[in-house]
Each structure stands twice: as C-alpha cells, then as structure tokens.
Simulated assay, not measured.
Amino acid sequence: MKMHNFNSGPSILPQEVLIQSAEAIHNFNNLGLSILEIGHRTSWFKDVLDEAISLIKELMQLGSDHEILFLHGGATTQFMQVPMNLLDNGETASYCDNGIWGSKAIKEAKLFGNVHVAASSKDKGHTYINKGFTVPADSKYLHYTTNNTVEGTQWHSLPETEVPLVADMSSDIFSRPLPYSNFGLIYAGAQKNMGAAGVNLVVIRKDVLGKVQRAIPAIMDYRNHIEAGSLLNTPPVFAIYVSLLTLRWIKKEGGLAEMEKRAKQRAGLLYNTLETLPAFKPTVAKEDRSLMNAVFVMTNPELEAPFLDACKQNGMIGVKGHRSVGGLRVSMYNALPMESVEAFVQLMKDFSDKHS
C-alpha cells in the first residue's frame, strides 16, 4: 500500500534526498566513511557547510549583509535567544500573537524585556490573521510567525513596519519567494521544508547585533557563532547534510517560485474540495488559509473517528489535528507530491458520498 505522508513535522522529504542520505550513512562521497563519523572540522564537512550556506543565500537572494547559521535547539530555543541578543533590559519589542508558537515566543521574551502585543487573533480562536495594527516606533523589533502550523493560518504579505522584522518561518521556509533581505532575523526548524529534525536555520542581518548591554552566555551569542562559522560547538552534521540535499533538490526543481506554484496547486485543490463537500468544514478565514497546513473539521463530529480510520486504511498518515485544537489537519510541504493530495481528495469525496 502506498503511504501518503501528511505529517506536520518531522515531515515528508523528497525521495531522492532519502536515498542520498541513506547512501551517505554507509559511504559518504565514496570516502569509505559514514557521514555520521566524519569530523566536523574536516574539509569534507566544510564543503557541505559552505555549499548549504551558498544555496541559502542564492535561494533567498541575500548578500553580505546577512549571515547564515546552523544551530542546535530547534526553533523553540530561538524564542529566548532572539530577545537575549536583541532586546535589552527596559526596552520593548513588539510581537504578533497568532497562535501557540507566537504565544510561547511572547512568554520567553518577557524574561528579557518588555513585550508589546501589537496584534492578536485570540478573539476568534486564532482562525484568522489580525493585520490591522501599528507598531510603536521605539520597538526594537517586530516578531511574528509567518505560518501557524497548528491553527492553519499564514501571512500572505509582510507586516508593514519601520522596525526590524523577526520571523519564525519554521513551517513555510523555502516555500515561496519573499524579500528576505528586508528581515532583521529569520529562524526555522529544518524538519518541515528543509531537511531532518535536529538543526535550526538562523539568518541574521548583522546590523541588528551588538546593541544590548547584558552579558550573553557564549553559546547563546549569535556573534560568537558567526565568528566560528557555525562551528562554535559540534554541529548536527547529518541534519545539516540532509538540509544541503534538500536545498539542492529545491534548486533543481525550479527554486522558490516553483515551490510556491506547487503549493498553490496542492492547497487550491484541497480547499476547493472542502468548500464543496458538506461533510467537511474549513475553520480558517479564506484570505488567511495556509498553503502548508490545511485545518478543518467534520460537520458531524461523530464522523471524525470513522474518517480517520478510513485515512489509516488508505495509507494516509498525520491527518489528525493538533491536540490543542482538535479536528483534522493536512500538511502539504514542498516534498508532498500532488498525487497524495489527489488521493486524499478522492477519499474525502467517497467518504462524503457514503455518509451524506
């Protein structure tokens, strides 16, 4: 039975990346050594790191003003590392609260300075993006989550602000072209669109650093990681290698414009089907629906369990919604083939016909 992987993360990877990764575990670049056992300061790994950084800058169209880091700790670590480096005691940063990850980032930032919640969508259960807000001019930065994996919302344009933009792009990184040079800082866990779990990408515009007075632990100071070229401590070598393979695949397939085209095709088919089947109901405002994570419910809640059973029987995994919101969720990251969405849509139609 063919498996269709709709997991929200760790999630689907391109088949060729899986094959190449498996080969490298046994014999990396015909060296007779595994990627798991090469030294992180060898020229072999330096080539991996340099190429990955080069591809990121190429895909994002970034110049020398931005630095690329591969760090431990996932995006969650950045909830505190960002304000530790950018927000001084007594200063204020603005945050958008559009879901669980924005809320957690706010909680961590309050440990280092003042937080102004510039926009919130709590009033409607985070089913939309609140875009009508202003950012105080004295804010050190504006932090927002570009795509809310749990709630199924996504920013389809950049927030308008004069202060530096800080973005958690964990679930839509490399899925579309954006003016990436406009951001002061971007961070993203790799395990959705750019590789395997275990590494965190951080993209920093250098002019936002060095402005806080506090003492920063060495391992948490971005400047130290920049100086060490992501080798301040032993990096997650294998996870970075899988990211390199994934970045190569994105470029080979046509880059970010092609990724966005495919994302719109997948999401368009699914959302259009949801609109036409009475058994299912989308929960997110139409203009704010995510191209990565479609969240919806059954019109009759009693049919949810039978539908999830039907998904399991047909090799469709990861469809159950996040435990905090319930319902159903289909994640459609870069590597998901259109045929998986087509198969899921057909299952929805068959189920709806059977239970209408």
Rank of each mutant, 00 (worst) to 15 (best):
V297M: 09
D50T: 14
I106T: 10
E342A: 06
N7L: 11
G184Y: 07
K206N: 12
Q154I: 05
Y95P: 03
M292N: 14
K57M: 03
M60F: 12
H66Y: 05
Y271E: 09
T276N: 11
I219Y: 09
P83G: 10
M80E: 13
M84L: 15
K206T: 11
E342Y: 00
Y180T: 12
K140L: 03
M169Y: 06
L36T: 13
Q265I: 15
A196N: 08
V135P: 10
P278H: 12
F238G: 00
G90M: 04
G255A: 06
A239L: 06
F307G: 05
Y95W: 10
E342G: 00
A188H: 02
V212S: 08
N300E: 14
L274P: 06
A137C: 02
F183P: 08
F296W: 12
G198A: 06
L165R: 09
G268W: 05
F133T: 02
Q313P: 03
H225K: 08
L36N: 12
H126W: 11
P177S: 11
R323Y: 14
S171D: 13
E67I: 09
A118S: 11
K206F: 07
V284P: 00
H40L: 07
D350P: 03
I317M: 11
L277I: 06
A109E: 05
D123K: 15
S43K: 14
L86R: 04
S94H: 10
S11K: 01
S157E: 14
R262Q: 13
A22H: 06
V295W: 13
G39T: 03
I226H: 00
V212E: 03
V166G: 01
S11Y: 05
T283Q: 09
I186L: 15
N193E: 07
T145R: 02
T299I: 01
Q265C: 08
S331A: 15
K206R: 15
N89S: 04
Y333D: 10
T146W: 04
G113P: 10
S34V: 04
L69T: 01
P179K: 04
L36Y: 04
G210I: 12
Y187P: 03
M84D: 10
S331D: 02
R329E: 02
Q191A: 14
V284D: 01
N193S: 11
H4P: 09
V163A: 05
I129C: 13
M348W: 06
I250K: 11
G9F: 01
K192R: 15
T149R: 15
V48P: 00
Q78E: 13
L256K: 09
E275R: 15
I56R: 12
F307M: 09
G315V: 11
L86M: 09
G9M: 03
N300P: 02
A267I: 05
T146I: 02
N114C: 00
P164L: 03
V166M: 00
N114T: 01
I53A: 05
E227H: 09
F296G: 06
S103D: 08
M298V: 10
T153A: 03
P217C: 02
S120V: 10
G184T: 07
T246A: 10
D50Y: 13
S171K: 11
V319H: 00
A343L: 07
Y222C: 00
Q15P: 06
R329Y: 01
F296R: 03
V150T: 15
E108G: 03
F174I: 02
S175T: 14
L158E: 12
T283H: 02
G132H: 13
G39P: 04
